[in-house]
Computed example of a mutant assay.
Amino acid sequence: MDISVVIPLYNEEESLPELTDWIRRVMNQHNFSYEIVLVDDGSTDTSWSVIEKLKTQHEQISAVKFRRNYGKSAALNVGFNIAEGDVVITMDADLQDSPDEIPELYDRVMNKGADLVSGWKQKRYDPLTKTIPTKLFNAATRSMSGIHNLHDFNCGLKAYKKDVVKSIEVYGEMHRYIPVLAKWAGFTNIQEQIVQHYPRKYGTTKFGAGRFVKGFLDLMSIFFVGKFGKRPMHFFGAIGSISFVIGFFITLFLIFEKLMSIANGTPYRNVTDQPLFYLSLVAILIGTQLFLTGFIAELVSRNSADRNKYHIAKVI
């Protein structure tokens, strides 16, 4: 199979018929063999009924419905597990992404060696309250990830080699940073393609202002996981050891100072009467705790088997 189109959706009943017809026209025009994987992220409208009807009209459609809303990352992860195409295309279900971009995306992955091609909506139809924070997050992500050639990490329209989606795990809210996950997995040929962005035709956006706070926290998380996910002791152990050593030597200094005062017959203060002693004690305790945290993290770092376990209501 040439292409799998993975589409996460939540309450998009109006746009689904138009979107699937648009995809079918593009695929037939270029003689692609394809499948459309629709992942209903717990929609509360009639989206699933629409999907069931579309399934009877298009044999290329397969679909999964979550019992409740888990988020876009969960939907993408399940879609990636199902996808069988040599090239996997992701796009949003709101008709703001154009299926007409698919042939060029496919060509760049299949024939020009790209591991991942991320869309860049150079001209956007979103309000400033959305575009300005997005630019700030993209700048921060470029700086921290080292992927300097991408302008929009969170664009829903992307193309992947099959090996990429089968090698990464998307969880939590990490869909914003899939290029970073791909890079950490060893897929370094990450490219960008300018794509058309259309105004939303139906409904309203499903993402509120809270996503920017989550985006910042996810950025910190992905940076930590990428750097220290396989070796948490290198992070916690290093900081803990430094803290412990500083506190230990301060304590030795205070004890040595008291002993020298006794030997010289000069007045001295008890070690426990000095504020510096309590600061050193805190440093020793924090250092010990951080070291033990790193040790425990090493033991559990690979044992998160339930991280992507979802309750699926229906599969067709």
Rank of each mutant, 00 (worst) to 15 (best):
Ile89Gln: 01
Pro8Val: 05
Asp92Asn: 09
Phe228Val: 06
Ala182Gln: 04
Val5Met: 09
Met1Asp: 10
Ile102Pro: 11
Ala238Glu: 10
Ile284His: 00
Tyr177Cys: 06
Phe137Leu: 15
Lys314Pro: 00
Lys206Gly: 11
Leu279Pro: 00
Ala159Glu: 04
Gly79Asn: 08
Phe207Ser: 15
Asp306Val: 07
Ile255Met: 13
Pro8Gly: 04
Lys230Thr: 13
Ala159Lys: 05
Lys162Glu: 09
Gln274Leu: 15
Asn11Trp: 02
Phe212Thr: 01
Thr20Tyr: 02
Phe277Tyr: 15
Leu254Ala: 05
Pro17Ser: 02
Asn149Lys: 09
Ala238Gln: 09
Tyr171Gly: 05
Ala63Ser: 14
Pro232Ile: 09
His197Ile: 02
Gly229Leu: 04
Asp2His: 05
Ser4Cys: 05
Glu169Gly: 05
Ala140His: 00
Ala297Met: 15
Arg200His: 09
Glu18Asp: 08
Ser118Thr: 13
Leu9Val: 10
Glu101Phe: 09
Glu12Gly: 05
Arg108Asn: 06
Ile23Trp: 02
Lys55Cys: 01
Leu285Asp: 02
Gly172His: 08
Lys309Leu: 12
Ala313Ile: 15
Ile250Phe: 12
Arg24Pro: 00
Ile82Lys: 13
Lys161Val: 04
Lys206Phe: 06
Gly113Trp: 07
Val5Ala: 08
Thr266Ile: 11
Trp184Thr: 13
Phe153His: 07
Lys162Phe: 07
Ile239Lys: 08
Trp48Gln: 03
Arg124Met: 13
